[in-house]
Amino acid sequence: MKPFDFYAPTTVDEALELMHKYQDSVSVIAGGTDLVLELNEYKATPAVVIDLKKIKELNYIRVEDGVFRIGAMATHASLAADQAVKEKVRILHDATRQVGSPQIRNLGTIGGNIAQSSVAGDGLAACVTLNADVTLRSVRGTRTMSINDFLAGEGAQKRNILAADELLTEISFPVPDTKHTATAFYKLAKRKSLAISVIGGGMVVTVDDNGVCTHASMRGGALGRYPMHFADCEALLVGKKLSYAAMLETLPIMHDQILEANRSRPWSVFYKKEGAQGVFKKLFADILGQLGIEEVQE
């Protein structure tokens, strides 16, 4: 590792002052499961490292006025163990409980997962499917935006709009009404543990009292630079009575979209399109079961 100075502030304001002072020469460290490896391999060479672990005000999971509010420093382990998340937001429960290994989940944070904005980020894919908001803070103030806008990249390295002196502080989204809304995540990987997602599929569906789909969100993590947005599949579902048959009708469109997006990497297409369809069939069955609409036996 290149030498650096180390700070461990205990408040967000203190951290923001330091980040503002050192700008591009700063790396903040949360769980370290991405950053320490990059430091160790000289892929990251900051002059200053600021530890976020001592900032208690960034570590929380709470429900306030119908909104889930999750501090950036909440770990994958704490999210996977949270009862409210498990009951109300299956997508986030299922994404975080499968990250890496127990050791990695004890260290790694949801904020780090989103800030890293890796193509295979499972927490990221879940939050994108939920269309969660993210809150960013700097000495200039606070801004809150949709995670989809957050991911607007500028250039090859920069995958999100975080400024050098800006901290991701919170992820928030309305508490799903589980009578009408179901959420699901399915990770396709080479092993059960310690495996990066080959595909991390996320789905959110809302139906009205007659079982007609009023909202659908379908995303495929690790299929492209950002969780792939199956907008045409979603459009096909909205307005229809939700059923397995109706959901299966989206698969040919998904197939074409993956084919199109992977033209430059034709060797991966066959596997990815087959894999994605398998992943989404699992998600359909999960969603239909949660909403009590249909039991699908695969």
Binding site: F6, A8, I29, G31, G32, T33, V36, L37, L39, N40, V49, D51, K53, A77, P102, Q103, I104, N106, L107
Partner: peptide
């Protein structure tokens, strides 16, 4: 109280 991989943690943490 929790198992962690010490190769992913900085000494200062």
């Amino acid at each position: 109280g929790e198992p962690v991989t010490s190769c992913c943690v900085l000494a200062g943490q």
